[in-house]
């Protein structure tokens, strides 16, 4: 191959048969549904944001200590490390509100959401919104640092690398296999201000 353009042409040619099969009417019908749901969801989103703010106020007015204590529950734990990082361990998806408060108490502004995925969901994830995702996420939660071991999902968080005014957003999805075995997947983000709550894809026009 003589140059980059030749290489790119080879790749383009190889992908030539790949064509999107959805027709325009299907796309616009889905778009209309999304628009309706988005309008209807604004009020609900505001209510959730208010609830999160309420938790934050409750925590911030609570007892303050120089060194936050670890918090361990059967479902999850939040443990500050001597190096300034925080280790979040999740075993079960319960009590997200309390987990939000626990993270904030150790200096990690976060919104944690738990979602149970219906068996008939075609896609798992959150719908796109207009809130920009910050690339500093990869510094706050380095790729490869997280682990899965013995039923625990372990997330080291470098709170010292979080830019001022930012908030981590965790959305944990629990799916169950045909045999009822739960599996957890995670979507993470770092945003300026308060994260917009996740709008699960299976509720957003599917």
């Amino acid at each position: 191959m003589s140059d980059d353009d030749d290489l790119y042409a080879v790749v383009r040619t190889e992908f030539e048969p790949v064509r999107l099969r959805a027709d325009l009417d299907d796309i616009t019908a889905r778009g209309r549904t999304l628009r309706r749901r988005r309008n209807a969801g604004v009020a609900a989103s505001l209510a959730v944001v208010a609830a999160v703010a309420s938790v934050a106020v409750t925590v911030s007015t609570g007892a303050k200590t120089d060194r936050p204590a670890p918090m361990n529950l059967a479902a999850w734990s939040v443990e500050p490390s001597p190096d300034g990082s925080v280790v979040l361990t999740i075993r079960q998806l319960t009590d997200a509100g309390r987990l939000n408060a626990a993270l904030r108490a150790v200096g990690v502004p976060a919104l944690v959401e738990f979602e149970r995925v219906p068996a008939d969901a075609k896609l798992v994830g959150c719908a796109e919104n207009d809130q920009p995702a910050l690339p500093e996420l990869n510094s706050v939660m380095p790729i490869g640092a997280a682990q899965y071991r013995g039923g625990e999902h372990v997330f080291p968080i470098r709170r010292d690398r979080m830019p001022a005014g930012t908030t981590l957003h965790f959305v944990l999805f629990e799916e169950r296999s045909d045999r009822g075995v739960p599996t957890i997947s995670v979507r993470t983000g770092l945003v300026k201000g308060t994260p917009l709550p996740c709008e699960p894809l299976w509720r957003s026009g599917k």
């Binding site: 992908f15 616009t28 209309r32 896609l123 796109e128 894809l201």
Partner: peptide, 24 residues
């Protein structure tokens, strides 16, 4: 498809992304 490595997964999310584009 090239980014995800799966044509099927790509088709689902691209169709959804176009629907979102139409919604706004």
């Amino acid at each position: 498809t090239a980014s995800l490595g799966s044509r099927q997964a790509a088709e689902e999310v691209v169709a959804e992304a176009f629907a979102r584009a139409w919604a706004r």
